[in-house]
Design a protein around this nucleic acid. Structure first.
Lengths: 232, 232
DNA sequence: CGCCCGGTTGACAAAACTCAATCCCCGTGG
DNA sequence: CCACGGGGATTGAGTTTTGTCAACCGGGCG
């Protein structure tokens, strides 16, 4: 593995506290691969052979049932996905595909579980990571069950503005059809939801979004730290 | 704490692998309390002062936003709730209330974190528990995003039948208004969804449900292990 | 007995989806 | 350089799903 990747990974919160030789052991059987966009990395239901880590690019976690598909989350550098499946040695609950050209590190799940069994710092880091993931999903579920689609879009835009640096004008990081899937609506409906937010100060021109008056949008969206704050 | 409660807790997967003296330390500052029905045990947004464990009865985890309320999960004996908040020392994301008269064990979060820091078996047990919780919520989210309300009800009934022992006739463990909230619909809509399932072999008379022909209902519901199986 | 409350029903309204047509950007190839 | 084609985005019309409001039913309990 390239030295730069090695260093990037070592600094991940997940690997920070573990013993050097255990980290080295993980890295020995890990490898990094670059994938073009739109490649399916894993398929739900498959056994979890590798822990995946996004080093660059972006990965979409999605799921299919009865011919319908929905996007569950986007994974951006540098973070892992399907940690829970790896730890429990259980099948993937979601599929994953690259959104852009992406560099992915793969660590055999077997080896992750072995090191988990012997390295206490690693075990505790995993607790922290999983607790974080759990709380994120709970927030997503509250978003889904308590808000209308337009309210979800409004709050999504408020979060996206912060994530991209807080400028009044920013760029949606994805196609609108995929944003629709993330929000749990059809692309047509999303289009109408955007129009519905015009009166609350949202200007959308393609993927470029402009929030004219954040506090006005907030009055409509009513963001809540227990749903929308990334931290905590 | 009563000796029987002590033994019950000790056998929990979460506490099984930990050192005796660490378990004893947790128990020393823990206490068990019995609550009547409909008591609010915790409120979302509050700091997570205690890890809660349901010893008997049942607890509803719910959440409120902008005047709307939704039921997120039901906790039945013997299991914990708000473990993630305790570990991260973060505010509760959900509120909790007793559904019936319930015995609840409370362990100060501070103490849980302390023992987590020193007992490796406990730390690993928490990993396993959190990974399980995480996967459960992911399944719930797939259920919500990929299925219509009637499909959710149909699959819920199939799961409930298995959970209660597999008899053709069984009892809903809760009021229908709460089931509606769990499924993310209004009580009126749930009522209509039940009627819609009559043609798929579901007979509902109050809280008593009868599934005339499970395979017929399954043809409609299309249950999927990656959404509906409790294990894995 | 009569009240209260959960459940059901009906009528209507709002939200969201479907299908089809069109637009428009962008990249390709002539 | 421009015409063409493809795919995402938008728009419109109509349908389905879900929610709202009000009325009513019926069992359990004081």
């Amino acid at each position: 593995m390239a030295d730069s990747s090695y260093q990037d990974l070592r600094q991940l919160h997940l690997f920070e506290a573990m013993a050097d030789d255990h980290f080295a052991a993980l890295m020995r059987c890990a490898f990094v691969q670059t994938f073009p966009p739109q490649v399916e990395l894993i398929t739900e239901g498959d056994p979890s052979d590798f822990l995946h880590i996004v080093l660059s690019g972006a990965v979409d976690l999605f799921s299919i049932w009865n011919g319908r598909e929905t996007s569950m989350a986007t994974v951006r550098p540098i973070s892992t996905f399907i940690l829970a499946a790896t730890i429990r040695d259980a099948p993937y609950l979601m599929s994953a595909r690259t959104l852009e050209k992406s560099r992915i590190a793969l660590i055999p799940s077997e080896e992750v579980r072995t090191v988990f069994g012997v390295d206490d710092g690693f075990a505790r880091a995993i607790v922290s990571e999983l607790a974080q993931c759990y709380r994120s999903v709970i927030k997503a579920q509250k978003d889904l069950k308590l808000r209308s689609s337009t309210e979800r879009l409004a709050n999504y835009l408020l979060r996206a503005q912060l994530r991209t640096g807080g400028q009044a004008e920013f760029h949606l990081g994805m196609e609108k059809r995929r944003l629709a899937s993330v929000l749990g609506v059809t692309p047509e409906h999303l289009s109408r939801a955007f129009r519905g937010l015009q009166s609350h100060g949202v200007l959308a021109e393609g993927a470029r979004i402009r929030i004219e008056d954040r506090s006005k949008l907030e009055r409509y969206a009513r963001p809540n730290p227990l749903i929308d704050d990334a931290a905590s």
